[in-house]
Amino acid sequence: MEEALRVLPENVREILCQYTEMERSTIEEIRMRINRPLEIMINGKPNFPLLNGQTYFISKDDSSQMINKLSHYSLYALEEELKKGFVTIEGGHRVGLAGKVITLNGHVKAIRDIASFNVRIAKQKLGIAVPLVSYLYAGGWTNTIILGPPQSGKTTMLRDLTRIMAEGDNVRRIPSAKVGIVDERSEIAGCVLGVPQHRLGDRVDVLDACPKAEGMMMMIRSMSPEILVVDEIGRKEDSEAIVEAINAGIKLVVTVHGTSMDDLHRRPSMQGLINSGSFERIVELSRKDGPGTIHAIKDKTGKEIRRKKVI
């Protein structure tokens, strides 16, 4: 949270300082739109805080202060980020951007005239993946798919699982492993200048913002990981790289969009992977009892190993 405060314009920072430490730790998003009121999302509800008894409207000046701070006074250094529409800042927080988009040959070149900022506060949920460990570890880690609809906590789960794998677990006698992460959307590790901002253990190597299929091959060739972690696979070339990795003796942990195993059978790019039985465990997440609800854990034939609700 403190890192996020540093990039905010002075007035907004002042408003946030009015909140108590407790309230501040529950903030999920800080949204700023030029000429519109400052919005702060707490527990999924919007708040429009006051400054000197009046609703605070974001000015053009606030926006240029914000851009200056995000870019360290060097807009050219944000070229890639302006193309993707978000900036990852220290602490793994993310600032989403919107405004006037400039295209070149039909592709987005950059966002100019940024009018909306959305500071999403990253919160690492340490220990959320602990209930999974006994199902996914049997003398060695198993190839695993984490399945769930959007916002069901797939990436959060994957991040904590990565931490457990890289740190090892003394109580369960699980040794630590070399873990390679291909982080195409900079969400697992939240890297700033290539250095992970989340706690992921000491034995983690991250290819930040790297296309998944290519990144997996790069990792296999150059970094000799024992476990590869990849977020949101789904394209055909991803599957090819996964087959390559599994046959190279590397364990894979991936996430996929979808609600159940049947969804995977219906997707042509995933069908082959599932039918080949390379993935020994499939973890289904749902949003029923909040993000991170473990709906079911299945083995490669689709038989359930466990069905119990844990938050």
Partner: peptide, 12 residues
């Protein structure tokens, strides 16, 4: 520094 390194000004 700017064109090839995309280094922020203060570092440059």
């Amino acid at each position: 520094e700017i064109v090839y390194g995309m280094t922020p000004l203060s570092v440059a």
